[in-house]
């Protein structure tokens, strides 16, 4: 390894050569999180690429990240707030719905984009080796930039509507993390399935739509009172996220409790199950994509 020393790669020159064993893997396999960590710079570059490319050829660029939730909120405020007189836990309906839409949009966009991420990067997957998990992870994380922009919009609206922030705000990162794990968990399942069954791309828009109505985005969760609906409702981790956002920002609803613990549990199951399923399907990606 003289060449390595010559070029100043001390670590390379001294480190023992790693050994890769290539053999067929059967059944469920390990997650290789260590390798994913070694490729963290790739994860960074893929995320950065997604952010950079997303609004590259659009006329108004990143403004889309603001327009999407803003206009959805205006439509909701008109139809659900004004016309349907939807209850909103005592805060103005626009703030109420935007506080739900901001995490929801992050989740929904992440889901629709990451579920197509592997197929969309087929040329990479079939030509170069790298931990495949980094693709859906990068797509999910790239949504955080849009999230940040729309969060600023929400802050602005809260300022206008004179909603005061409380110490509950400290909980917000935890709810965001829950949104990330839920979005990523579902994306891992869908992106791996999409490689083999292209039906997935037709399923995702429906899934997102149904999921939104199963989440208290346009209505308060206090509307769902009777069992067993209330318990079934708790199965949806996005309920925990949206409720959590409203509680920590607007002070509506209940403080974190059993329902949230349940959301976290479901979300973790979705994520871990998705990761293992993804790894199991991974070996066929290059052959079928």
């Amino acid at each position: 390894m003289a060449w390595a020393a010559e070029r100043g790669y001390e670590a390379l020159a001294t480190a023992p050569a790693p050994v890769f064993v290539i053999e067929p893997e059967r059944g469920w396999v390990g997650l290789r999180l260590r390798e994913l960590w070694e490729y963290r710079e790739l994860l960074y570059f893929l995320t950065w690429r997604e952010v950079k490319v997303r609004y590259k050829q659009t006329a108004i660029g990143a403004a889309w990240a603001l327009i999407q939730p803003l206009f959805t909120m205006l439509v909701f405020a008109l139809f659900f707030g004004r016309l349907a007189k939807m209850p909103s836990d005592g805060v103005p309906y626009p703030v109420f719905s935007l506080a739900g839409l901001v995490p929801w949009t992050f989740f929904a966009n992440g889901l629709s984009q990451s579920s197509n991420s592997l197929v969309g990067n087929a040329n990479l997957v079939s030509k170069v080796y790298f931990p495949r998990l980094s693709v859906p992870i990068a797509f999910t994380l790239s949504g955080l930039v849009d999230f940040a922009l729309s969060f600023v919009l929400l802050m602005g609206l809260m300022l206008i509507e004179k909603v005061h922030l409380t110490v509950h705000l400290l909980w917000l990162p935890a709810f965001l993390l829950l949104a990330i794990t839920t979005s990523l968990g579902a994306s891992l399942w869908l992106s791996a399935l999409n490689v083999e069954y292209r039906d997935v791309r037709y399923v995702v828009p429906f899934l997102v739509q149904f999921w939104m109505f199963a989440t208290p985005v346009v209505y308060p969760s206090s509307l769902v009172k009777t069992e067993p609906w209330r318990s079934l409702y708790g199965l949806n981790p996005m309920t925990g996220v949206v409720e959590g956002f409203r509680w920590s920002l607007l002070g509506t609803g209940n403080p974190p409790g059993m329902m949230l613990a349940f959301s976290i549990l479901i979300s973790m199951l979705l994520l871990i199950g998705g990761a293992y399923y993804f790894r199991r399907m991974e070996k066929n990606f290059a052959d079928v994509i």
């Binding site: 290539i22 053999e23 067929p24 893997e25 080796y129 070996k283 290059a286 052959d287």
Partner: peptide, 11 residues
């Protein structure tokens, strides 16, 4: 390591 062998082993 783009695709996996069906049989055998390589190092």
């Amino acid at each position: 390591r783009i695709t996996e062998p069906t049989t055998g082993r390589a190092e």
